[in-house]
């Protein structure tokens, strides 16, 4: 029962954060200098009809509390509003660009995690000094380099110089390789650092000594005991990972000329298409909360100690 209560508590906390995030986004709209209608119109066509439409849709002629509640209500119903610049519902705009970004994000996350685990497991322990130093340095370099620079360097060497991969576009799996790598490398760098740190700590724990005293193989000690402990703090980074993927997608899609959510966002920002920006931001917060709650629940499953009341 304590497990059920723990799950319920985390889900409730997630909902609260979600509500707060939606409110924050709404406040950002209100805080925009000038008329709210102007903010929503952005750089789009500004006619009395459109303005009237905005006033009706956002309920701007009603009291602020009603406006706010109405906004929450629409959001809860999945209505992301309408872009007056593109003259289309925002959900549609986002929906059709979701697939390429999702593909990119999933591929990059998978590759990043895989690389991190392999590197961290391969370089932990105190016996191997040199591989560890080299990989530490590489990780620091990757984490400290702007992702777009990694992309640009990869692009100029592998695509321009050797022509191994297409320069731009999203045609075929070959076009996915460089963007994925660009996005995955910094992630792998940071995760490997966190993971190795966790492994080192776990290997210093007394239960590792006991496991070794049982005659368990070193590889089993590492994988069966230490890795689980090291993965726990890494799992809590899932929410952050999602943020990096989404933020990274904006940059990477720009560098590689790929269509996707990032491009939509960026052009919405430059043309001040507030409804689209708001929707993307709110949506990303929602997914962040979802991912984070899932990560918390995973920890709850893996670590029985957290299930205590």
């Amino acid at each position: 029962m304590s497990l059920l209560r723990a799950v319920a508590r985390r889900v409730a906390a997630g909902l609260v954060v979600l509500w707060a995030a939606a409110t924050a986004a709404y406040l950002a709209l209100l805080a925009a200098p000038g008329n709210t209608v102007d903010s929503i119109v952005g750089d789009g066509a500004d006619t009395p009809q459109i303005r009237a439409q905005i006033v009706t849709e956002w309920g701007l002629d009603r009291p602020p509390v009603v406006q706010y509640l109405d906004y929450l209500w629409r959001l809860a119903g999945g209505d992301l509003g309408r872009s007056y610049l593109l003259q289309r519902p925002v959900a549609e705009v986002i929906g059709e660009q979701l697939a390429p970004t999702a593909t990119l994000a999933v591929a990059a996350a998978g590759l990043g995690v895989l690389l991190a685990v392999v590197v961290a497991v391969g370089t932990t322990g105190r016996r191997r000094r040199w591989p560890r130093r080299v990989s530490s340095a590489a990780e620091l370099l990757l984490v400290s380099t702007p992702p777009f620079l990694i992309g640009i360097v990869l692009l100029s060497v592998l695509s321009f110089r050797y022509g191994l991969f297409p320069v731009a576009g999203d045609q075929g799996p070959a076009a996915l390789v460089l963007p994925t790598l660009t996005l995955a490398l910094p992630i792998a760098g940071l995760l490997a650092q966190v993971l190795r740190d966790g492994l080192d700590r776990a290997l210093d724990e007394p239960f590792v000594l006991t496991a070794r005293a049982r005659g368990v193989r070193e590889r089993a000690v590492l994988l069966r005991h230490a890795l689980r402990h090291a993965l726990l703090p890494t799992v809590t980074l899932a929410g952050w990972l999602f943020g990096v993927l989404l933020g990274g997608a904006v940059v990477v899609e720009q560098v590689f000329g790929r269509p996707g959510l990032g491009q939509v966002t960026l052009s919405a920002v430059t043309s001040k298409d507030m409804p689209v920006v708001l929707a993307v931001v709110t949506l990303s917060a929602a997914v962040y909360v979802l991912v984070n709650t899932a990560a918390d629940l995973t920890c709850l499953l893996v670590d029985p100690r957290l299930r205590r009341s």
Binding site: P206, F207, L209, T210, H229
Partner: peptide, 23 residues
């Protein structure tokens, strides 16, 4: 050594809360 440990010689250490894998 792996064949010795646990089979020929067993080790019991202090404080089983941290000496048994909590997970």
């Amino acid at each position: 050594w792996r064949r010795v440990r646990g089979r020929l010689a067993g080790l019991v250490v202090q404080d089983a809360l941290v000496s048994l894998d909590p997970l």
